[in-house]
């Protein structure tokens, strides 16, 4: 460090503090280390705040009914615990158990797309389907439950169609022919299905992010 004489400057550079306090040797070292570590405090702040917001005790949530767990686990295999269906946009919350604290960390959501977006309609019906979504905005899996689309048997029912959505980001455009493969001849059915997946996943993601922002 440069040694500047106090008479040359009006202000007092911080290293002079150690001189004024008449510290020596290791004490000086420790004080300077403390001063520098002030820059690193925000790091601890972020990590600490994040953990505090996301880790909750198991007792704080109401778990989903045992009969539903099997299906929820199929939709979101990475999660250990599922909260019950709740919210104005009905959904189940999927939690992972944090090995360090034993508390639960939110991993994602499982919901019925037609319940989150009830006004959506394909060709002849609302498509009833389960969707799994991670907090990173990736779909884990979709499962089409029920519909009466006359042209569904060759367009959305085959497993190749649903398989495309595993790991898909909700920031994609969900357009047939671009990021999604679809057969022709059932345009309204396919477009309606893609639209309901896109809108419902983004609605749930927005709700979650706004919640997070509100907490912080």
């Amino acid at each position: 460090m440069l040694r500047l004489h106090h008479s040359q400057f009006r202000f007092v550079p911080r290293y002079v503090i150690t001189d004024q306090l008449k510290l020596n040797g290791s004490a000086v070292f420790i004080v300077r280390l403390l001063i520098i570590s002030v820059f690193f405090l925000p790091v601890l702040d972020v990590r600490h705040a994040a953990r505090a917001a996301d880790t909750i005790a198991r007792s704080e949530i109401t778990e989903a009914a045992p009969g539903e767990i099997a299906e929820l686990k199929e939709m979101f295999p990475a999660a250990d615990v599922f909260g019950e269906k709740s919210g104005q946009r009905p959904h189940y919350r999927a939690y992972k158990v944090d090995p360090a604290t034993g508390g639960l960390v939110l991993a994602g959501f499982v919901f019925r797309a037609d319940e989150v977006e009830p006004d959506e309609f394909a060709y002849a019906s609302s498509i009833e389907m389960l969707v799994g979504l991670t907090v990173d905005g990736k779909i884990t899996k979709i499962k089409i439950l029920r519909h009466i689309e006359p042209f569904g048997y060759f367009s959305i029912d085959p497993p190749e169609f649903s398989a495309q959505f595993a790991g898909k980001s909700i920031l994609d455009s969900f357009e047939a022919g671009y990021d999604v493969d679809a057969v022709t001849g059932a345009t309204i059915t396919v477009d309606g299905t893609l639209r309901v997946i896109r809108k419902s996943t983004r609605a749930i993601a927005r709700q979650y992010l706004r919640e997070q922002k509100g907490e912080k």
Partner: peptide
């Protein structure tokens, strides 16, 4: 480095990579 630390930690292994701005 300390000045940049908060940004560095947010990028690796942070809880959410998604932001409202993206949506």
């Amino acid at each position: 480095f300390g000045l940049f630390a908060p940004y560095a930690s947010a990028q690796d292994g942070a809880p959410q990579a998604l932001s409202l701005d993206d949506l």
